[in-house]
Computed example of a mutant assay.
Amino acid sequence: MTPSATQRPRASLAYPAALLALFALFWLALAIRPWYRQDWLLENVVVFAAVPLFAFTARRLRFSDLAYTLLFVFLCAHEVGAHFTYAQVPYDEAFRRLSGQSLDALLGLRRNHYDRLVHFLFGLLLLPLAAELFRAEAPPRSALWRFLLPVLFIESLSAIFELIEWLAATVFGGDLGQAYLGTQGDVWDAQWDMLLALAGATLTQCLRFLAARRAPAAAV
């Protein structure tokens, strides 16, 4: 019997399952001898909560392969920061071994900027997932709200995470609190982190809307 035209085949979960398996291997590799075990545990609280949530709800709300891929990339970048602690990720040493030059010196950087990169990636990579979430659960009625709501959602998550960092630093204090907070002496660190998340989300949303204008059938 031919299925009705209104029926849509359920998307396979093989691809997100494969990404989950790859992430599990990556996570296990970086779980071995992290530089600061207690900070690693704190950094992974969000992973322990988010990954099972996405896994258990995948059948009810199956995101696109692109959204899952970008989520995978972001989580891998986060795990690198958790392994080394964000303020001590040795990207400059790695670049120096490859090129013989200091990346920080070339860019005029005075602190370790890996945390800033990941906050930017948070907005850049997770915006499509937020847009798909709104489209599935609370579809906006106008193009303006289709543009704004995912961006504002990402920014609100960034602000909530900054509050969590502040609370954790207050509760734990000492070296652990400082390692988790990762301000590196910058009193505007939280504001920079939220600004970069907003910039990443806005950039991706602009690219999505430009792509949709070139291909009007594409959903945003």
Rank of each mutant, 00 (worst) to 15 (best):
T2F: 04
S4N: 15
A5I: 08
Q7R: 12
R8I: 15
A11I: 08
L13M: 09
A14F: 09
A14P: 00
P16W: 08
A18P: 00
L19D: 10
L19H: 02
L20V: 03
L22F: 10
F26W: 14
F26E: 08
F26Y: 15
L28I: 13
A29T: 14
L30V: 07
A31W: 12
I32N: 11
W35T: 09
R37K: 10
D39A: 13
W40E: 06
E43F: 06
V45W: 06
V45M: 12
V46E: 06
V47E: 01
V47S: 10
F48P: 00
A49C: 13
T57K: 13
A58F: 03
R62M: 12
R62W: 05
D65N: 15
A67H: 01
Y68K: 05
L70M: 10
L71K: 05
F72G: 08
V73C: 12
A77Y: 02
E79K: 11
G81C: 10
G81Q: 11
A82M: 08
H83Q: 05
Q88F: 14
Q88T: 06
P90K: 07
P90F: 09
D92Q: 03
R96V: 00
R97T: 01
R97D: 11
Q101I: 06
S102F: 02
D104K: 10
D104N: 14
L106A: 12
L106C: 02
L107H: 05
R110W: 02
R111Q: 12
R111Y: 09
N112T: 08
H113M: 10
R116K: 13
V118T: 15
F120N: 06
F120K: 07
L125H: 08
L126W: 04
P128D: 14
L129T: 08
A131T: 12
A131V: 06
A131G: 13
E132P: 04
L133M: 11
L133T: 15
P139C: 09
P140C: 11
R141I: 01
S142K: 04
S142M: 04
S142W: 05
A143M: 06
W145I: 07
L148G: 03
P150M: 11
P150A: 13
P150I: 09
P150E: 12
V151G: 02
F153I: 00
E155V: 15
L157G: 14
L157H: 02
S158N: 06
A159E: 09
A159M: 14
I160N: 02
I160F: 14
I160D: 04
F161G: 04
F161C: 02
E162L: 03
I164H: 03
A169F: 03
F172Q: 05
F172N: 02
G177W: 08
G177D: 07
L181G: 00
G182E: 03
T183Y: 11
T183E: 09
T183P: 00
Q184H: 04
G185C: 08
G185L: 09
G185Q: 11
D193I: 04
D193Y: 01
A197V: 07
A199T: 12
G200C: 14
T202G: 10
T202C: 11
L203Q: 04
L203S: 07
L203I: 14
Q205H: 11
C206K: 05
C206R: 14
R208K: 00
R208S: 10
R213E: 12
R214F: 08
R214Y: 06
A215Y: 06
P216L: 14
A217N: 06
A218V: 14
V220G: 03
